[in-house]
């Protein structure tokens, strides 16, 4: 399989790029516009967002590896169904694990664990990357994209929980700082669904002003 004489190191520069690119210039949410569906509804608090990110990372990395191992066997016409079955099986496993170990979070996530199946980011990366690359590279790509998806989720839920609820990971930080006695009030609006979109829009705004190459031309 290795045609070039010098075997590529496990963490060569190219492979590290697979991990770091999705963080900024190829971020799945803000640049590729994938996986927004489930990303926003569960960002009211940090805890479900963290659990969701971990589940997506696990599902993505494994799904990428499995489809990459099968890439030469899957007939082109039915590949979508094969991919869906692989992803759905992994999601069922994750769902059962969540139900067994963190039942309360699994209740909060409700249908959104199931929706990882149709999360466009997973199908998108399988289609675009793992069907044409070796398992190890696909694994790195899955971890990189999953982690950067999680990063956005955690940033959004950080702001929403801090300003909307005055807590961080259920720790009442604003109360401990004593800001309430100074007349500070929580902004309940941050907890409403539409604010997730606006927080993401601000992140996109900030990222694109920092990296002008991402600005869309009309």
């Amino acid at each position: 399989m290795e045609t070039n004489k010098t075997k590529e190191a496990l963490f060569s520069k190219k492979n590290r790029k697979l991990l770091s690119d999705p963080m900024n210039i190829n971020n799945p949410i803000t640049v590729q516009v994938l996986g927004i569906c489930s990303a926003l509804a569960i960002t009211v608090k940090l805890k479900p967002a963290v659990v969701m990110s971990l589940s997506v990372i696990v599902v993505m990395a494994l799904a990428n590896v499995i489809t990459s191992l099968m890439r030469n066997m899957i007939p082109n016409r039915i590949r979508i169904i094969v991919q869906l079955v692989v992803v759905a099986t992994l999601v069922i496993l994750v769902d059962q694990v969540l139900k067994a170990f963190v039942y309360d979070v699994s209740k909060q996530l409700s249908v959104f664990v199931g929706l990882i199946i149709t999360n466009c980011i997973i199908m998108g990366r399988i289609e675009a990357f793992s069907l044409g690359n070796t398992p190890w590279k696909s694994f790195l790509d899955g971890i990189g994209n999953g982690a950067s998806y999680g990063l956005i989720l955690i940033v959004v839920s950080f702001f929403r929980e801090l300003f909307g609820n005055g807590t961080l990971y259920d720790y009442p930080i604003i109360e401990k700082l004593g800001l309430y006695e100074l007349g500070y009030h929580n902004n309940g609006m941050m907890l409403l669904p539409p604010m997730a979109l606006i927080v993401v829009a601000v992140i996109i705004w900030w990222q694109r002003s920092k990296t002008p190459s991402l600005i869309e031309k009309d």
Binding site: P194, I204, W205, P212
Partner: peptide, 21 residues
């Protein structure tokens, strides 16, 4: 410029969401 395309669409969707509430 930095908000063109995706960013502004997100914001408008957010505002419409508030209206739908």
């Amino acid at each position: 410029p930095a908000l063109r395309g995706l960013g502004i669409t997100f914001m408008i969707t957010g505002l419409m969401g508030i209206a739908f509430m």
